[in-house]
Design a protein around this nucleic acid. Sequence first.
DNA 1: TACGATACGGACCGACGGTCCGCTTCATCG
DNA 2: CGATGAAGCGGACCGTCGGTCCGTATCGTA
Lengths: 194, 194
Amino acid sequence: MADRRPRKDAARNRAAVLAAADPLFARCAHPDDVTMADIAAAAGVGKGTLFRAFGDRTGLIRALYEARLEPVRARVEEGPPPLGPGSPPRRRVLALLDAVLCFKLDNRHLAVALEQTGDASPYRTDHYERWHALLKELLEQVPGGADADFTAHALLAATRADLVAHLADGAGLSREDMRSRLAEFAARTLGTED
Amino acid sequence: MADRRPRKDAARNRAAVLAAADPLFARCAHPDDVTMADIAAAAGVGKGTLFRAFGDRTGLIRALYEARLEPVRARVEEGPPPLGPGSPPRRRVLALLDAVLCFKLDNRHLAVALEQTGDASPYRTDHYERWHALLKELLEQVPGGADADFTAHALLAATRADLVAHLADGAGLSREDMRSRLAEFAARTLGTED
DNA sequence: TACGATACGGACCGACGGTCCGCTTCATCG
DNA sequence: CGATGAAGCGGACCGTCGGTCCGTATCGTA
């Protein structure tokens, strides 16, 4: 009934692929420039291994993305305030958006690759639904708030990977500038009261 | 010096392709399900003709999109207020966002296809830059506004085609609901004064 | 050590975007 | 109106990529 643990070589190869793929995506301007064969070669494994471990290209990118995302998720769910639980909702909304923005900035290549994976809407992924649900929950606790569901979507849309990448790489906006612009924008939607 | 007018058959074929491609994209759930060969066959022309007329897949989709967008552009640039020039900035911002949202709703299939065209960021297209520039200009005229450039990006991000499609098709949000939610959201970022 | 289960890897496949080139159609000019 | 060269046509063809398959190698176990 319980699925067996993977064999040792399988685990090693999986790790090797993840380790090899990341810098490959980071180095290339466009995600499509990185082919599955490239990744397999860089990891020193065969293509079959790669597909056996991750299913398909989307699965591989998602695995990479989620591995990187995990620490952020942990900080959000059980870390110290203001990002973690226990801080006032308004404060936590801002902290959450800032964390998402920073993550997208730091992992542009992966985030862009994932968002533009043709297979499915980026809105039907586990991590998006988690962020959205949490953000919505927090927004509902902010007094005088509007429709929390839509607002959560709209605020998260401001952190879309390709927008972030465009502002950072194309428009040359600095990290700190972007963070403060987003914070200011979000603060406005939450109502003007400080 | 002046480029010659296209031959009559070329113009006819170009029109036939545009006419044939639109319903093809509309019918299919995922844009990638529509291949260039499909479009050529539906239009009754050869693949060579199709590539000669539009350069590549992106060019074709862009041509489709811009043909549909043209009436909206005209209404914005020379139509009557509040969407056209002459209305107070705040009012026109809301009208502009509403127009963009409605356009994306009505042309989801094309908009999604274009946004996820791997070739380039959706932020480096003529039409995006036009909407952004106009929105930014208007925002600068709204008293007490924050950074107009970022705000314009963030507001437009709330009308991203895949988000709109997700809300309309996935979450079942009605057209009118979405319009009022977006209007409310935008109104908040413009300041609470009515 | 022997043996079944699991995983490996790269040859192979089908599909797609895009090109090429011999043939056709248009428009111009005598 | 017929000739002629340019412009356009179309579909066979190509290279590449994601994904599969299966003979072989490796692992874990008794």
